[in-house]
Design a protein around this nucleic acid. Structure first.
Length: 465
RNA sequence: GGUGGGUUGGCCGAGAGGCGAGGCAACGGACUGCAAAUCCGUCUACACGGGUUCAAAUCCCGUACCCACCUCCA
């Protein structure tokens, strides 16, 4: 079976056929760095990271581009409210985003272009569109440039909408537009905006519209035509529709496949609307490890809507700890071969839920072998488990999860020694059949946040709750 | 008004005409001094009403409810 992907444009799962044998060009819309990243933001990062890893595993030479929008209305607005320069605020939020991706083991893209670094490319693209009669400078002297949707008959093809059925943007200032649905390619500078937020152009100083950024950057790094374009479902319209219209109107074939990840909501609403900041990545990471959050995100299909809850995250984490427990018990092994069921699941539009089911099958089988005393058999299963986890970016042994710092190592060693002393006492108590004392010791450790497990022999294991 | 998606067992969450996905929880058993961990077993579900079919959670028609997008959101 070959890799099959759901293409939003054709609304069907179809074989992935790259433009060039053995290579895959992928462009994913990254974030607008305007606020702290929350769980919803990183879902896209994790989902497309899985795509990237699976393509690589499947033998493709992948060029993965994920942009950063570092100039837009929200950034300007928030920076002003904070009394900081917009670029400083954007840079701060970019670092937060990087930290969030790192905490979730989202591999860095091949390149991560920023919008502000590609204004000349955008201007060039806009000029080409004007020349071909698909864009025009506003006649009201605003310095805006708009894309002429009526000039492009295919407009609406990505989301199967007809221009006449669309609601016109109400807030958009209709002045200077030929059709209310025309969208801005270039925004003339407004007096109220900082001068640092504008660049020279043939139409006067201004800044690029949101959609043109991605067309220009995808074209620059992936070429006129490339394989996969991804992003969140909300971007289908207008962002992706507009991107495709611009690029194709300018003569570029653009993306062959469109992939969109579904939303993750809380209490039935978008995270961006939910109050408070309990769902920002740093705050979630105070309660769960990055690997647990990533497992939770990977265990559901990227096209399925997920209703986030800490209860569900806890259940998912409990399951993942069982996987880790097996690996701990099986001993160190190198990643082995992937079970065919896993490969088939992943090839079927990145069927991570089915892939995770195969993972659990291997864990259960491995535990069973371990219990039966078949250490070699168990290690083989452990090798498969590690291989599967590796593809999903969930291998606990991956140094990306943070090789513990030196200080942590020392603390760990110190704790280990203290616990060993208490466990020696506990074993002595058990041998004397003083179970009250034995239980008291275990309870004492439990109260300190340390869970211990022991059997009839000398062996025991401990872990922090 | 237009476009797209959804409703699955106590909970989470796959599947998309016929073989009990999987996880979490619970309960029973094995193992343990007792626990924990692990394994075995139990819990046979697909919003509602029709229809097609030898066979429907899956296809068709209808109904109800939910969600997303159609202005800046992953």
């Amino acid at each position: 079976m070959t890799l099959r992907l759901y293409d939003t444009a054709t609304r069907e799962v179809r074989d992935f056929v790259p433009l060039e044998e053995g290579r895959a060009g992928v462009y994913v819309c990254g974030l607008t760095v305007q606020s702290e990243p929350h769980v919803g933001h990183v879902r896209s990062g994790v989902n497309f990271d899985v795509l990237q890893r699976w393509l690589r595993h499947s033998g493709y030479d992948v060029t993965f581009i994920r942009n950063v929008t570092d100039i837009d209305d929200k950034i300007l607005g928030k920076a002003e409210a904070l009394g900081r320069p917009w670029y400083a605020h954007a840079a701060t939020m970019k670092r937060e985003l990087d930290a969030a991706y790192a905490a979730l083991n989202v591999a860095p893209p091949t390149y991560e272009p920023a919008a502000t670094g590609h204004v000349p490319e955008m201007v060039e693209l806009i000029e080409a569109l004007i020349e071909k009669g698909h864009a025009y400078a506003a006649e009201d002297g605003s310095g805006d440039v708009y894309f002429d949707v009526r000039s492009w008959p295919a407009y609406g093809e990505l989301t199967s909408q007809r221009i006449d059925d669309m609601e016109a943007a109400e807030d958009a200032d209709p002045r200077g537009k030929r059709d209310p649905r025309d969208f801005a390619l270039w925004k003339g500078r407004k007096e109220s905006e900082p001068s640092t937020a504008s660049w020279p152009s043939p139409w006067g100083r201004g800044r690029p519209g949101w959609h043109i950024e991605c067309s220009a950057m995808a074209g620059k790094y992936l070429g006129s035509a490339f394989d996969i374009h991804g992003g969140g479902v909300d971007l289908r319209f207008p962002h992706h529709e507009n991107e495709q219209a611009q690029s194709r109107a300018a003569g570029h074939p653009f993306a062959s496949y469109w992939m969109h990840n579904a939303w993750i909501t809380t209490a039935g609403e978008k995270m961006s609307k939910s109050l408070g900041n309990s769902l920002t990545i740093p705050s979630v990471l105070q309660r769960f490890r990055g690997i647990e959050l990533r497992f939770y995100l990977v265990a559901s299909h990227y096209r399925s809507h997920v209703e986030f809850s800490f209860e569900a995250l806890e259940e998912s984490a409990a399951g993942f700890r069982r996987v880790e427990g097996f690996l701990d018990r099986a001993g160190e092994v190198e990643p082995g071969a992937l079970p065919q069921g896993f490969v088939d699941a992943m090839d079927d539009d990145l069927g991570t839920p089915a892939a995770v089911a195969v993972l659990y099958d291997a864990v259960r089988e491995g535990n069973r072998l371990l219990q039966a005393g078949d250490a070699a058999g168990a290690r083989e299963r452990a090798g498969a488990v590690r291989a599967m986890l590796g593809v999903l970016g969930l291998d606990p042994a991956d140094p990306a999860w943070g090789a513990s710092s030196r200080a942590e190592d020392k603390a760990q060693a110190a704790l280990d020694m203290l616990i060993r002393a208490r466990m020696d006492e506990r074993r002595a108590a058990r041998e004397n059949r003083d179970f009250a004392l034995a239980d008291a010791i275990r309870d004492e450790l439990k109260n300190a946040g340390i869970s211990v497990q022991d059997g009839p022999d000398r062996d025991y294991q401990w872990s922090l709750d």
